[in-house]
Design a protein around this nucleic acid. Structure first.
Lengths: 342, 342
DNA sequence: TTGAAAGCGGTACCAC
DNA sequence: GTGGTACCGCTTTCAA
């Protein structure tokens, strides 16, 4: 069922039917109702390609998700982010175009998707310290919102959680428990979020006059093996850490296993603060301090990015939207934590 | 830069340029080269909407991912599946349209996306015991491939891993270690994969003449809290299990924690077989039998689904493609396992 | 308030 | 081998 057929059925011109369907004011109430009713009855849906061709819009947002070229890892938090964004798009009548691209083809992927007119806007995932995507997208003249920040925070739209604050609080928390040797198991050094987390950790140690021991500081792929291997190595050293602050749930699984394997007891011998864990259920089950998940807040970040982008699409000359976001990251309120005094 | 401009620049008709670009044979080698070169130079990309409108194709595959309406959970394995599929699409020049839909709006979402002509085909995720999507999609006359199977395996295309076999092997493995009380922590009862896993588990017990104890059998959302709560309850009972077979890595995290909290030692007091864990690194680090990850095989499943679908799109009247897949699920080769004799 | 007709940017038939 | 032209399904002037 297309517009023409529907028009013929109603004995109206396609023009009028289109106007009625799109809520133009000049259509009489009577015809509008007739049209809407018929559209519903015949389950008419306008062809997206035709509509897009005519309007220049696609009602589609592109998400190009970077994957580490070597080991096609996808960060699992993306699924939560995507879930939040998808909801916003659905509500606004937008679709989501998803592509996983490896770093080498990234620029081409952006050029491609815009040149072919597939999207009205883009979400930029996984900003890195060396990142030219903002520059590229500005030159392509397409609206976009970055999830996270680049090395500079100026001149583009972004939504970010306050990673440095979260990690200084987490570290403070462990220091207050009496720990002197707090290890940081972090994400890849090239990622901005990891730098921010590292900054927070270091700042906390500096403020508390604790020397930074580089042997307690690692960065890597957020995988269970990396968490396990790093923690294991540290725990086997002659001067092991008594506490860990860890950058993701996946890493934390590995860290826990290393702790367990070493015969140490979590919360007794070793403390652990994991960044994006979902340990809320422990509040009922034990007396370790525990706060709720980052998963729901990543979903919220997805929603915010999406909504900001949709706004920017409708308001092309608006200044950049920037949200630094504390929610659910404040230790004592929501970050995943499982720790106990040594 | 559009076709017309490019044609004018080359002093050719749009027709010829289009033909040259699309590899039609009747174009002279000389013009073809000129055209291709110019296209590259001006970074010409055909407008996807226009092309789609003219050809009736969209070069887009839709993935409608069901989310449990209540607690917007996204199964994290989806990100791996998506990664595999995305790669196949990329190679074939297709894009992926992703939408998360809650169960109530599912049928509408399928109708919508097809009626608006947004996709050339669909991947069906998360088949349930009660599922009318195959029927619906057949009536909508759109190519699709199911990841998994419905209650019936006939008359549609699917790619599935042999869940029942994987779980009977896992259970057998535990029984051979001497366990008599093996608990199954499974996914939601409404899901077909959970039924298949349950079938495998039960079959193994039956074959080994071990009575099925329904108190050792639970189904639920694949979350850490559910795994934790279930394992905890079982371990506290007067007749606790000595081994667990668990339906996902996320569940296994919870189960491990319950074991640990109880003061039991994994691999000594209790054995655990987790279905989609990534414990490959343990092979170096310990002497428990360990096999590699399901994550990479879910990625592979994504690739297979995608490739089968693309084939079906090009061969509309081909009979259904059906792949029952053992790879990486055979205990002793690849399923995530961490267990030890009691 | 309604309709005719000209695009949007390609493809594909038909003639040359 | 190449070009003219109708058309894909919708929106949007312009005229009535």
């Amino acid at each position: 069922m297309d517009l023409k057929q529907l028009a013929k059925l109603l004995d109206l011109s396609p023009t009028t039917v289109s106007r009625a369907l799109n809520g133009f004011p000049e259509v009489s109430q009577k015809t509008r109702l007739r049209v809407l009713e018929a559209a519903k009855e015949y389950n008419y849906q306008p062809n997206a390609k035709a509509k897009g061709l005519a309007t220049g819009r696609t009602n589609t947002i592109g998400h190009l998700i970077p994957i580490s070229a070597g080991h096609e890892m996808v960060n699992p938090v993306f699924s939560d982010f995507i879930a939040g964004a998808s909801k916003a798009y659905m509500a606004a009548g937008y679709d989501m175009l998803l592509s996983l691209v490896d770093d080498e083809n990234e620029a081409d992927a952006y050029r491609n998707v815009t040149a072919r007119g597939r999207v009205d806007g883009l979400i930029v995932h996984g900003p890195k310290l060396q990142d030219n995507r903002v520059e590229l997208l500005n030159s392509l003249d397409v609206p976009f919102v970055v999830h996270g920040r680049l090395s500079s925070s100026d001149g583009y739209s972004w939504v970010d959680v306050n990673n440095s604050r979260a990690f200084s609080r987490g570290t403070n928390y462990l220091l207050e428990l009496g720990h002197k040797r707090v290890a940081l198991i972090n994400g890849l050094e090239s990622m901005v979020f990891a730098k921010h987390r590292n900054d927070g950790y270091c700042e906390s140690l500096r403020t508390q006059q604790v020397a930074i021991d580089s042997s307690l500081l690692v960065s890597g792929e957020m995988t269970e093996p990396f968490g396990y291997g790093s923690a294991r190595r540290m725990l086997q050293s002659e001067n092991p850490p008594t506490a860990f602050i860890v950058s993701s749930m996946i890493l934390a699984i590995g860290v826990r296993r290393a702790i367990e394997e070493r015969g140490l007891k979590l919360g007794v011998d070793v403390s652990l603060v994991a960044y994006d864990d979902d340990l809320s259920y422990l509040t009922e089950a034990s007396d370790v301090p525990v706060f709720t998940s980052l998963r729901s807040s990543v979903r919220e970040a997805g929603r915010r990015c999406a909504e900001n982008l949709l706004f920017l699409i409708d308001n092309p000359h608006h200044e950049p939207l920037q949200e630094l976001w504390e929610a659910s990251l404040i230790i004592g309120e929501s970050t995943g934590v499982a720790a106990r005094k040594t």
